[in-house]
Amino acid sequence: MNILVCVKQVPDTTEIKINPETNTLMREGVPSIVNTFDAFALEAAARIKDKNPDSKIVVVSMGPEQAKAALKECLAIAADKAYLVSDRVFGGSDTLATSYILSNAIRKIEELEGKFDAIFCGKQAIDGDTAQVGPEIAEHLDYPQVTYALEAELDGDRLKVLKEGQDGNMVIGVKLPCLVTFTKPSFDPRYPTIKRKMAANRAEIPTLTSADFPDIDTTRIGLKGSPTHVKRSFVPEKKKGGIKIQEETNEESAAKLATLLSDAHVI
């Protein structure tokens, strides 16, 4: 099975500090990591490869040159090949333009690596939190898509996907080729091995630029090709801490809730 995993390099949010004067994120000196949900997508691909060892995992990222570090991390964990999509004209792209560029990149990479049976993405990036790029790539490629996946396994010419739902999980069969976006599963992603990490250090990562997609519609890329614009970034006010009531029985929980509300003079 030939799987492409889309990854984004993001700042490590556990290290983020807020500038108290401007109330904006201070990115200086903040280490970059592979977007957490993309790491789950890579792990899902790796688990398919564990069961189907002749599978190939290719990773792609759109971003500046330093995003190669994130791609190398993916190579150290499970990926067989990596591509960076990078060009000044792609700068300022919103989710729609990014997904359009990535779908062009995917077609180009397929010329080099063979057709992909599945494209895996994280459900969203932990910095932008839009959850749009994955589904938009599926639309550009006209692929069926499953979002919020926990696990996926190959089942003949289909993928069997365990999808997280609000009221319960469901198993969905989806025909290949398809696109799946992943959320946090119950297991931890695997750790890089020393051997893979050393090979990743030595790996040459090809960069695809706009010149590699001569047919791309330049009115749909970059800042000018982006219909959405961020007007303002701000840190939302923190919710005040609540309490969790979990007594032995539902009746006892309800009674405790009533007592607390009564004590607070709400009822």
Binding site: Y191, P192, T193, I194, K195
Partner: peptide, 22 residues
């Protein structure tokens, strides 16, 4: 097992024996 899988036992041994040769 996770330490072994990561390759921590093989750092100094020859690649011929499954080590890393570092």
């Amino acid at each position: 097992q996770q330490m072994a899988d990561t390759g921590l036992l093989g750092i100094a041994f020859d690649e011929k024996y499954g080590g890393i040769g570092a």
